[in-house]
Design a protein around this nucleic acid. Structure first.
Length: 591
DNA sequence: GCCGTTTTCGGCCCGACTGTTTTCAGTCG
């Protein structure tokens, strides 16, 4: 694990300990923020310490700086060790249980000596939680249910699965009589790579009441359990263990509700702070002048009786706050609010900007469709280019091509290209980057190819220096156009190469080698944060599906979502280049 | 714990819901 990740985890744990100890919530919020800053940081924190730039980062104060400096110097933090000795480590995972928070955990610990999940389960089974303050029969059952839910769903689900379920449920909501507008919200709308639960916001026509809509929502096929259903809100659990929440609001409040439930939480907090500065208050019903809002009567589940400054659309609210409208993918409190104020938001890339897929496979290696079938499918998407890039010889398990087979394949691709009009086929190869950074083919073979994607597939546990040197050598190769899935990570199962990204980005920018955002799930590699840092360093990106079948070409939108979260514009991505510009890009390095 | 063009002290975002309570604490998003 990288130093940044270790320190990020340390601060996350520190924040959790403070919650359980019952310290001021603002302290734990502050450390949670530091944890997030470290996780998002693309330079090695050691360099920030050595360069003395830690002070300049907003959110890192004297206490955090001391902990970071100690940890970088000695591999541990005395402050952290002292505090963590006061709370059993086994209590921290209990914060993940839905319905169980720090206050209750503290009571369980101090009054029933529970210090771990196992002990909590044993105590529940033995009925030992009775008689505690604020813990009635229902609360005890909800803790047991929460543990069961956590163990069943195993936490977060992947973006593609969430999109499928989300779209189905959204269509269902839109078909309910009385629904006027409905949209996906939450982290799904922001395009995050993993999703906790699915949020849907809808507005109702004046003639319909919310309870009819929430009831119809819970009656769709595939609902395993109804978690709750009221006039304005319902929650269900699908058979796959995915939670879907619906909120119903009057149409005039739709924009405020959508903004609120799209989040992120951190983005919302910043917006509300900004509202305060302007003598306004922002909530899920709308943006109000504080003076009027305080006088207005309020009833739970109903909009406050004051005229909002803005509430109908998200654009209205941003505008009233003096901001350009911020796209959902940017709402992470990563500088988007300042950019919106300065009118410096990027014009984000869209799926429609994509004119090429530059990394795909056929039956020649481990794909399922022929050259012609892949070409026709890509043409049907309106692409101008398709690169066929089957595996190189080291990928024995994927039926990788020998030099001889590859050269024959190149001929076959060119021949197919002559037959199929309306799309240009590029004959290429996904060449393995060997453990020391050499290519899996000699230059004499590579120079016969229209396009070379060089990817790491094996030895993905190298140390940082070796891994970085390996990728740098590939970037330097004059025949390599794109570094495919640069880290080799797999979401949820493999960390990938611990690259020194600043060196990688500098070299790629200097050489004109594109870095891939692999759109295949669970790769999505580069990730959002690294894609953004790469652009800032002057790199060009390439978004490709790595499709192994014609269906695989459909996942381009996942890569575009990552790119959007990485603040990418069409001009940063070679797949959006004009035919001329792409051709020039492919030839330039070889001069 | 962090921050500062009113501030180096005193704020720090907001409402819904649930359960355990007779007015509020805890949790969630």
């Amino acid at each position: 694990m990288s130093l940044n990740s270790e320190l990020s985890d340390l601060f996350k744990t520190f924040a959790a300990i403070m919650e359980i100890r019952g310290e001021s919530v603002f302290k734990s919020i502050a450390f949670s923020k530091v944890s997030r800053i470290l996780k998002d940081m693309t330079i090695d924190v050691r360099k920030a310490v050595e360069g003395g730039t830690l002070d300049q980062i907003e959110g890192i104060g004297a206490s955090s700086r001391k902990i970071i400096e100690d940890f970088v110097k000695t591999g541990k933090s005395k402050d952290f060790e002292e505090v963590s000795a006061t709370v059993p480590a086994g209590l921290i995972p209990l914060l993940e249980v839905p319905g169980l928070g720090p206050k209750t955990i503290s009571v369980l610990w101090k009054q029933r000596q529970i210090t771990s999940m196992e002990e909590l389960k044993a105590a529940l089974a033995a009925g030992k939680l009775e008689g505690l303050p604020k813990l009635g029969e229902k609360k005890i059952k909800s803790i047991a249910d929460g543990i069961a839910l956590l163990e069943k769903s195993g936490g977060r689900i992947g973006l593609p699965a969430a999109l499928l379920v989300g779209q189905l449920m959204l269509n269902h909501v839109r078909s309910i009589p009385g629904v006027k507008r409905a949209e996906l919200a939450g982290s799904l709308r922001r395009g995050k790579e993993t999703i906790g639960d699915i949020d849907i916001i809808c507005s109702n026509k004046p003639s319909t009441n919310g309870a009819d809509i929430t009831k119809a929502f819970t009656e769709v096929a595939g609902v395993e359990k109804i978690l709750g259903q009221g006039d304005t809100k319902a929650s269900i659990l699908t058979a796959d263990g995915i939670q879907v929440d619906l909120r119903v609001v009057p149409d005039v409040n739709f924009g405020a509700a959508l903004l609120y439930f799209t989040g992120s939480k951190e983005h919302n907090v910043r917006l509300r702070g900004l509202s305060q500065d302007k003598q306004m208050t922002l909530n899920e019903w709308g943006l109000y002048k504080i003076a009027e809002y305080e006088k207005a009567s309020k009833k739970t589940g109903e909009a406050p009786a004051a005229k909002p400054v803005a509430s109908k659309t998200e654009d209205d609210i941003y505008e009233a706050l003096g901001l350009r409208c911020i796209e959902p993918e940017l709402r992470e409190d990563r500088g988007e609010i300042d950019a919106a104020r300065a009118n410096k938001l990027p014009k984000l890339i869209t799926l429609a900007d994509i004119k090429a897929d530059l990394h795909t496979h056929t039956t020649a290696s481990d794909g399922q469709n022929s050259i012609e079938e892949m070409a026709e499918a890509a043409k049907a998407k309106g692409y101008a280019f398709l690169a066929i890039t089957d595996h190189s010889k080291s990928q024995v398990i994927a039926n990788g091509l020998s030099a001889e087979r590859l050269l024959k394949h190149v001929e076959a691709i060119h021949k197919a290209g002559e037959k199929i009009k309306g799309i240009k086929l590029l004959a290429g190869c996904e060449v393995d980057i060997l453990v020391d950074g050499r290519m899996d083919f000699e230059d004499a073979v590579l120079k016969e190819l229209d396009i070379v994607v060089a990817s790491p597939h094996v030895s993905l546990k190298q140390d940082s220096a070796k891994a970085t040197d390996r990728i740098l050598r590939a970037i330097d190769n004059k025949y390599v156009h794109i570094i495919g899935h640069p880290t080799g990570r797999l979401i949820g199962s493999r960390e990938g190469l611990p690259l020194e990204f600043d060196r990688v980005f500098k070299a790629a920018a200097a050489n004109g080698t594109a870095l891939e955002i692999n759109a295949g799930y669970p790769r999505l590699d580069l990730n959002d944060v690294n894609a953004r840092a790469a652009i800032q360093a002057g790199c060009v990106l390439s978004i490709n599906t790595d499709a192994h079948s014609i269906d695989g070409l459909d996942w381009m939108h996942l890569g575009v979502a990552v790119a959007r979260r990485g603040w990418a514009e069409a001009g940063n991505v070679i797949n959006c280049f004009s035919a001329d510009a792409l051709t020039k890009f492919l030839l330039r390095k070889r001069k």
